[in-house]
Design a protein around this nucleic acid. Sequence first.
DNA 1: GTGAAAGCGCTAACAG
DNA 2: CTGTTAGCGCTTTCAC
Lengths: 338, 338
Amino acid sequence: MRERPKIKDIAVKAGVSVATVSRALADSSLVTAETRQRIRELARELNYRPNVSARNLRTRKSMAVLLVVRDVGNPFYLDVLKGVEATAREAGYSVLMGNTENEPARETEYFHMLRDGHADGMILMTGKLPPDGGTRAGGWSRLPVVVALEMIKGSRLPHVQIDNVGAARTAVEHLISLGHRRIAHISGPIPEQMSLDRREGYRLAMRAADLDIPAGYEVCGNFLLESGQEACRRLIALPEPPTALFVANDEMAYGAVHELRRSGCDVPRDVSIVGFDDLYLSKAFYPPLTTVSQPRAEIGRTAMELLLKILSGGRTDADDAIVLPTALNIRSSTAPPR
Amino acid sequence: MRERPKIKDIAVKAGVSVATVSRALADSSLVTAETRQRIRELARELNYRPNVSARNLRTRKSMAVLLVVRDVGNPFYLDVLKGVEATAREAGYSVLMGNTENEPARETEYFHMLRDGHADGMILMTGKLPPDGGTRAGGWSRLPVVVALEMIKGSRLPHVQIDNVGAARTAVEHLISLGHRRIAHISGPIPEQMSLDRREGYRLAMRAADLDIPAGYEVCGNFLLESGQEACRRLIALPEPPTALFVANDEMAYGAVHELRRSGCDVPRDVSIVGFDDLYLSKAFYPPLTTVSQPRAEIGRTAMELLLKILSGGRTDADDAIVLPTALNIRSSTAPPR
DNA sequence: GTGAAAGCGCTAACAG
DNA sequence: CTGTTAGCGCTTTCAC
């Protein structure tokens, strides 16, 4: 086998011009079925594959999308990534991983990568836009970007999201309906929109039921296991500790349960716990965790589909704000108070 | 602001040639510090960024690496991905995600992508080479590929791995030293190398201790939670059920514990369990899981470093088989038999 | 239907 | 030190 054959090699062998080969390979109707056939066979024979850099340069496309998350190490993104990857693949796109670690500079860097032609579009799951979003001509919002998972308020970008406020509210109402009155909340980092929303849902449910939120009942975590543990420790130490916890994500909920157990409390006998996310593990956890499940894979899929639509020239109106349904998954970490 | 400025725009504005601009931007020493300075400022002013497709075409590099795994949805890969991403980033590379779902066709497709210039190198974590690996000139082994996590026997490719046999053996020896004699094993899919190796470690430990492996004591799973549950169910139903389980990964171990609990057995009182992987969750699991921990992030980092070395012209000898250490993490899911 | 030719934007010889 | 020039491999007018 030769070195990588180029289009010209095929052209020579087939006795046609490079243009014809290019057309034949692109399935253009401007080419006789016969020549097309011949060229395709020749291409296969030579094991020809087009050089993507050349094609990208010429077509000004990269057939890649950039998926930017806060932390690639977070298990939450797994299914989302899976959804994105599958959909992208089917459409002939590849997926570039972006990881910001919450650093604004990186956030900006990925937008640059998009402009530079590394990718044709981007799915942004970090909940924020680069700092200088407004100063550039047209801002970043002109770029083919879909915001998913975490919404960015006031950004005219198309969104794929869930109703965090409503879902959180439903979760807390479940606790209330069980008879709990002393319900605390472990939130994500404030002032991230997602944390704010879930806390808002908690507050709404409490207010609607005429329940008090005593001082110290709202503890702020960072979505990581240890912070759930730490937050729980503080809650237990309160003069009047809660009988139920609404935790802003499963990972922190795991930490909270762990801490409760360490201090001799039983879940749900002494304290009920509701999480958020329904990680793949939550059903095998002990006790099986009551939690809000969100359609992660579908979020990924939908976001990618929306991006594809935009890339193929579809409108990018803000009415493209898609809200996917959540569900409260009631398992064994919640029970009536003693 | 203009449309994307190109190198020529800068050249014109600066009154120099494109070559000079290119050099200045590349920090070539062939350019006066002064002109370089001037050009760089101009570039920043114009918000210039090089077009990657053009550069890729010209340099025949993409500054991207392909990370291919069996299943992007598997939490096991998280930290590995994180290690790869961080190292790649530092070196100026981006990471393309590849997902094979165990389909040979996809496996091949990613090798093609590599050849096509989508990426400069590849980190392969699927444990297999495409079917026609040998028929092509030089086979796939000529490409800049590093195999990580799962080894491919007899492939001259550089490897980054752990000693699965030894680690498994140590895990089982722990059980034996606790006094267990009826020890069963839930393996991964056979005949995957990784599953084979861990089972081999189990067998070696058993044989060395003169312990029998009764019929039905080796059950095959697929590394997923449900399969651990299912396998455990069969083990419990045995006329003489085991008092300890060595499970080939944590996820299946979770499933096994879950099943044991469902059927009224206590872990570790009735059955001891050792897992493999030490997922981030295993310490918050109930009971905290005794498990073999492998340095996932470091595996990712090392694989990427090795790939970088190869890409920069380093040797790719098979003596580049790097074995990273594991550790047995003893927690609360193991205890002496009753 | 097919071919000739013009670039996409950049880098790297080669001259000066 | 700087400029001129020739492509990288492909797609796509524009002629024929």
